[in-house]
Amino acid sequence: MAVNSDRQNGTLIARADGRIDGANAREFQVALESAIDPTDSNVVLDLENLSYISSAGLRVILMTAKTLQRQKAKFAICSLSPSIKEVFQISGFDRIIPIHSTLDDALSALK
């Protein structure tokens, strides 16, 4: 489970691909944590190439959202496939984590 990341105009963009389930959720957590600096103030998690996420994966995203809240950083996720969007809707996580349809939307929302 690799997380690729780069920074654009001060915003960290992290990308996860493939599947996140109980078997690799910890790996995803470690990768995501090491991608984010304590000094980051804007973070977008781009899930365009993610095909599946289980509740264990949602938990990692929830922990990330909480960590970022503590460091007063803005956080958004973007480019969810319909099935992953449904997971966020059913779990109600779309009520606490801003979801954008494209990376550009997410970037301009964090400005």
Partner: peptide
């Protein structure tokens, strides 16, 4: 139909 509820133990006072 869903009731717009969020998973429990995530955020207080929902």
């Amino acid at each position: 139909p869903l009731t717009n509820g969020i998973a429990l133990a995530v955020v207080p006072d929902m």
